[in-house]
Amino acid sequence: MELMEYDDLEALIVRIREISGFDFSGYARPSLLRRASRYLTTHKMDLPQLLLHIEQGGSVVYGLIQELTVNYSEMFRDPDFFRKVKSEVFTYLESYPTLRFWVAGCASGEEAYSLAIFLKEAGFLGRSLVYATDLSNKALTAAREGVFTLGNARTFSENYLAAGGMQSLSDYYHVAYNKAVMLPELRRNIVFSMHDLTGDGAFNEFQFISCRNVMIYFTLELRQKVFRLLYNSLSMLGFLCLGKRETLRYSGLEDHFKVIDSTLNIYQKIK
């Protein structure tokens, strides 16, 4: 922690913005500071060196950006969320002939795969398309492969069952070389793509957007901006899922949504 001060962090943010165009200024500082310090320790450098590195260009800055964000994820994370989505949202979405889902900030894809699994069980994966985007190319690469360490399989399975899965999670992957490889047919309807929630625009219209555990890292102002983006990307009557830890509060868009579940923060766009 003592590696860096808040002032240094600000300087770093500015440099990153100048070099890459990516703007961290809307990120919560304490978290950023911790991540940046960690970066320095793991890469065994100090701030001047890092700045120099960035200056020299290349992919350093992109690597840094990816490491400043937190990429943790799980299959069926917060099972009750998935349970609710299945019982409340899917029954509604069922009547769409084609469906678009957006998992914003998908990390290494667990959430997207989880969604795809439930879509498959609900019987409309075929007419659904899940866009899963993230800032981190590294995470996306992992996500595209759809390979997860078996070590987590147990938690994942428990989550899956707790979420109301109808089969066994292991029906959706096969084990190869100590890894769980997700079935390709799940992958077929997922588009993994790079997208920066803070800078990039709306790229499609969705009936369902899940943006969980992403905005906790953002400041309030940035959240509002991102909320606008999510709102603009939602089709009318589409669902916005923020998960247990984020709410629409202070988004300025409260009255554009109907609350489907207030603890899991599932909303429906009504105007």
């Binding site: 165009g21 790079m194 920066d196 800078g199 990039d200 625009g201 709306a202 790229f203």
Partner: peptide, 25 residues
């Protein structure tokens, strides 16, 4: 046509053979 704002993306498009680039909306 892309929703993305990062410089890198623009390069990527042009590199792939696009003549130009316009962002959404």
């Amino acid at each position: 046509v892309t929703a993305k704002a990062m410089q890198g993306d623009r390069e990527q498009c042009l590199e792939a053979g696009a003549n130009d680039y316009i962002s959404k909306p």
